[in-house]
């Protein structure tokens, strides 16, 4: 793009085109963390469920502590590899997820320390926290799919009240498919379609 004088109509076209370009990229950037967290949590839920139920050894649950590290490595490498642009909404979403993530992490650690009575309730709490985060993200990005998926996952998570023991993990995995994987793919698909 050269530095040249333009007509009024051309300038309006440039403004519209540039704003649309940056929006398409924001949407794609938002989709990736959802997919990374969604797939890793779903896969790990099924792996832990299989290992604990087949060996009757609850120590396999310590595999959950891999989750933050796996995701941080993936997201950090992604951040390094691309030119960056940040929106105010990006910053707000990041702050909300750090806050909610910290609450979820604290609850997870506490439930590992005290495994006496309601240890499995942590999975329902995590789904509630994630659903709240998704709904807020959806309102900020004006994406219906986020708060629809958040409402659906809360409804599905109620099954956990009637499921006993390790099988809660299967409901948990289903919630993460609804809450992260499906919205992530929808955003990615919409972002690609807008670019085409």
């Amino acid at each position: 793009m050269e530095e040249k004088k333009i007509s009024e109509a051309e300038s309006l076209a440039i403004i519209t085109q540039m704003i649309a370009t940056s929006r398409a990229r924001i949407e794609k950037r938002t989709a990736v963390p959802f997919l990374v967290w969604g797939y890793s949590t779903t896969i790990l839920s099924i792996v832990v469920w299989y290992l604990v139920s087949s060996t009757a050894n609850n120590n396999w649950s310590f595999l959950w502590f891999l989750l933050p590290f796996v995701n941080l490595i993936i997201l950090f490498n992604r951040k390094k590899s691309k030119p960056m642009a940040t929106t105010i909404i990006d910053k707000a979403i990041k702050a909300i997820w750090i806050f909610l993530g910290s609450i979820g992490f604290c609850y997870s650690v506490l439930s590992f320390i005290d495994q006496s009575n309601s240890w499995w309730n942590i999975f329902m709490i995590i789904v509630l926290i994630m659903s709240i985060g998704n709904a807020i993200t959806g309102f900020l990005l004006r994406y219906k799919v986020f708060w629809i998926s958040a409402s659906l996952s809360i409804a599905v998570s109620m099954i956990m009240l009637y499921v006993q023991g390790i099988d809660v993990l299967l409901v948990f995995a289903a919630c993460f498919i609804i809450i992260d994987i499906i919205p992530g793919h929808i955003i990615l698909w919409q972002s690609r379609r807008e670019r085409a």
Partner: peptide, 13 residues
């Protein structure tokens, strides 16, 4: 100007 306006349009969002 084409390039300066494009830069400002991007940065505004």
């Amino acid at each position: 100007s084409q390039l300066r306006l494009a830069v400002m349009s991007i940065l505004m969002s």
